[in-house]
Design a protein around this nucleic acid. Structure first.
Length: 285
DNA sequence: CCGCAGCCTCCCCT
DNA sequence: AAGGGGAGGCTGC
């Protein structure tokens, strides 16, 4: 494949080798893979981009036959957000657990993925590890998604998924998730403005709307809105976060909804970023 | 309202 | 070497 020349986004992005890796494949997206040369190649929507860090600068390039505008990269990686100010607004001064996680993963950002695609990936995520979710997503793309360049496919649209029979999803090893995807696809195919409407709503309303979909509960809705809807107040509670809140914040015995409510209040309007720092830290051990 | 088993499949463990 | 238990959740009882 022929690529454009590498272009630089500079050093001010704050990304390090470590925080870029954690941002791209630390559980927010399942569509990035490390290349033999150590760069990252991935997709979102119908975009394909390769990223790398050289001498502390973030660099990017795209296939020549399918270029991506610089502003799209900036938007996806949230480089245009006031990162230092947002980090500073988190309650790290009074929260040593958060302070430690932020120190270890400085530079970690919340991606701005397409909401539709993000919801799809997280609908497949229940009781799966990251490598397994990646396999499911990429196999689905290869089977049903548009071929963007030879060998690289986009995640199919919900409209396309609505045409796929449930047994064909089972054949891709979806397991019990097949009926969730089939039912949600059928529902969404009749509501072309669903995601646009969600994005226009406040977080709480968008969350309720997503939870109406088959197979979508609080955790999946929060992941979709945080990583695919830029709703930074979302505080997804999975088993890892439940564990750290139980062990380090004295919340043993609290249920998942209670932990999520506490997280949104304690960490504030950017609770989702705090969640991702804690998630990365507890997962790294 | 709350807690829990069951759901597919894979993986790790014995 | 075969078989049980649990995994980044949701649903229905």
């Amino acid at each position: 494949m022929i690529f454009t020349p590498w272009r630089s986004l500079g050093k001010k992005t704050g990304f390090t080798e470590y925080s870029l890796a954690e941002t791209l494949e630390g559980g927010q997206s399942f569509l990035w893979a490390k290349t033999a040369s150590g760069s990252w190649l991935g997709t979102w929507g119908d975009n394909i981009t390769e990223l790398r860090i050289v001498s502390g600068s973030l660099e990017w390039r795209t296939p020549k036959q399918r270029t991506v505008e610089r502003k799209e990269i900036v938007r996806y990686l949230a480089i245009d957000s006031e990162y230092d100010a947002i980090c500073n607004s988190l309650p790290w001064r009074s929260d040593p657990v958060l302070a430690d996680a932020m120190k270890r993963f400085r530079g970690l950002r919340i991606l701005r993925q397409p909401l539709s695609e993000t919801l799809f990936c997280f609908l497949l995520s229940s009781v799966k590890s990251i490598p397994q979710i990646k396999d499911l997503c990429l196999n689905t793309a290869r089977e049903f998604g548009e071929e963007l360049v030879p060998g690289i496919h986009a995640i199919p649209t919900w409209e396309r998924l609505a045409e796929v029979a449930e047994p064909d999803l089972r054949a891709l090893k979806y397991g019990y998730r097949a009926k969730y995807v089939a039912a949600t696809a059928e529902r969404l195919a009749g509501e072309p403005d669903f995601f646009e409407n969600c994005l226009a709503m406040p977080y709480v309303d968008a969350r309720s709307k997503l939870i109406e979909l088959p197979g979508v509960g609080g955790k999946v809705a929060d992941c979709a809105l945080l990583f695919g809807g830029a709703k930074l107040e979302a505080f997804p509670v999975d088993t890892w976060i439940a564990k750290v809140m139980s062990d380090r914040y004295g919340m043993a015995g609290w249920n998942l909804d209670q932990i999520a409510s506490f997280g949104r209040i304690h960490f504030g309007p950017h609770a989702g970023l705090a969640q991702q720092f804690l998630f990365s830290a507890v997962r790294a051990g």
